[in-house]
Structure formats: structure tokens, C-alpha cells
Amino acid sequence: MQAFEYANPMTVKDAVALLGASWTDANVLAGGTDQLSLMKDYIHTPKRLVNIKNIKELAGIRKAGGNLRIGATVTLDELIDNREVRMAFPSLVSAARGVGSPQIKNMGTVGGDLCQRPRCWYFRNGFGLLAQKNGRSLVDDGQNEFHAIFSQGPAKFVSASSLAPALAALGATVTIAGPNGTRSVDVASFFVAPSSDQQREVDLKPNEIVTQVLVPMSGAKNASYEVRLKDGLDWPYAAAAVALRMKGSTVESARVVLGHVGPTPVVAEGAASALAGKSITEEVAAQAGESAVQGAHPLSGNAYKVQLAKTAVKRALMEAVKRA
């Protein structure tokens, strides 16, 4: 990896001041479970690494107003073990558990999960975020079994975040600190499909830091389901998260979000509206799955993922209403 300077600020303000105008000036180091790999492969070549693990205000989980506030440096393991999270947000617990590797759960953070780079194997082998060669997508005619089935411009990778679908379904917001103070973005709109190799897949500038996630404690029933091959560390082929506001056994309103099927988490509005006013049965859940993949356009080698996304929605819905 390229030699770099290491900074160890104690406050968000100092951390932001240590970042720069470009991604090659400085990168944030939290869990480091992927940042260091990216640096070893020269995909990230920051001149400075800014360690944010010693910033107290980024740590911890607590109630704040009607929200549960989850600090950016909360580890996946802390999230899984937190009593409030376990009570209110089983979808988050199951998504975090899906990461599979105890080492990554112990080190990896909530902020890092949201900001992690795609796992697209063209990107990771140095062919750029959009994986294009001479203006043509390498993914379209290449090995795309793990790629997007929802078209969002030239980007064909899938969002790697395990937590994003669950957070988006729960209506969570991300707080971002920058040189001009803080701003707040819905998790669903925090993810953006880039249209050039230079852009990022999240709404974050090189001199900004995710500080926290606010999850509304709305009492919605929620669950997530990942289709995965391995029991240990592995990436989901497709995932779905649901949050249901219920009136008795009837769905008042729903949010359904698909993961690992597009460059961003895919909010399935059609599926959500089809659920309103219904009781969740196997048939209703299966129909919601069908609705959720209506807009899918699989690539040459990943038609099978449409089936997986459907199944994930159905199973997440059945899981959500299984809970008392």
C-alpha cells in the first residue's frame, strides 16, 4: 500500500478538519475491515488515514426523542447485543448477524457498513467503479452473476451494505458532519447510483463523516431476510427488509426494501402499497414479492436473482408477522 499519514482526532470537528477536498487526500478509518484491503490493492490511495474510533461522540446507542440513536462507530456486534435494538428492530439484528464473520462483526462499524465500497469483482480488480473498458460495460457481457438486476444507469454493482435495507425500511436517517456543520439524509436517499468512476455510491463528500443513524421507534413490525450460500462470511445474493405498521392483523402501511440487487437499496413501493389493508398470508407475501421485482431487468447471467429477491421479500414478510 501507499505510505500514509495517520491521524487520531478526539472530536468530530478535528476529524472533519483532517479530511480533505478529494478522496486521495484522506480517508476515514473505523473498523478498517475493508479500508486496509482497498489500500493494499491500491484502489484507495489516501495520503492520510483519520482514525475516528477514539471520538467519544460517535460511540454508543441510546434513546433520543422518538428515535434510537446509533453512533457511527458502534460495532455490528454491539448492535446485535443491544437490548433496545433487539426489542425494537429484529430486522437490524438479523441483517448484522448475516455478516457471518465474528471478526468483522467485532471490528466493523455501523457507519462503515453504510459507507463500504461495492464488492463488484471488476471494481476490486482495478477496472473502476463502473467497470467499463473503451466505453463498454465489462459487466453486461461478462461475469455478472452477483451484479444488479435493477438498472440504475451505468452502474451495475450492487450496494454491499448489510444494514441499509433494514434501516431504509425503518425510515432511518443518517447524520453527516462536514466543515459547515451537520446535515441529515434519509438512509434510502443516502445511497446514489454513480454515473462516473469518480463519484461515490453514497451521498458523502470527501470531507464529511457519518456520525450517527437515527431510527424512529415507531413500533413497526420488522424483519429482514438474506439469501446466502455460506453459513460463515459470505455476501448475500439478495436480501429484503420490511417494516409494517399494523392495525390488529391488518397492514396499515408498509415499507419494503431490497438489498444486493442494485447499486442502491431498492425501495419497492409497488409491493408496499399492495400490502396496505391486507393481512399477511403466504399468498399475500408471495404477491408482494412478485410486485417487488416488477421493474427488474436482469443481466445476461443473473436472471436467477429475480427469484431470490422475490423469495427474500416473501420470507421477510412472513418473519415479520411471525413475531408477537
Binding site: 464488492r119 469483482w121 471488476y122 476490486r124 480488480n125 477496472f127 473498458k133 465489462l138 457481457d141 461478462g142 461475469q143 452477483f146 450460500l229 455460506k230 453459513d231 460463515g232 462470511l233 459470505d234 455476501w235
Partner: peptide, 24 residues
């Protein structure tokens, strides 16, 4: 996994060159 367009092995890592773990 070899890629014809680039001539590269795409899964030259243990993330996508998958091996069963104890749970599998």
C-alpha cells in the same frame, strides 16, 4: 471464474473463491 473480456481471474481472493466453512 475467468473473464473473457479482461482475461483476468475475477475471484482471486477468498471472498468469491468460496470454500465451505464449519457450518456448511
Amino acid at each position: 471464474v475467468m473473464d473473457e473480456a479482461t482475461g483476468r481471474c475475477l475471484n482471486q481472493d477468498m471472498e468469491f473463491y468460496k470454500l465451505a466453512g464449519i457450518g456448511d
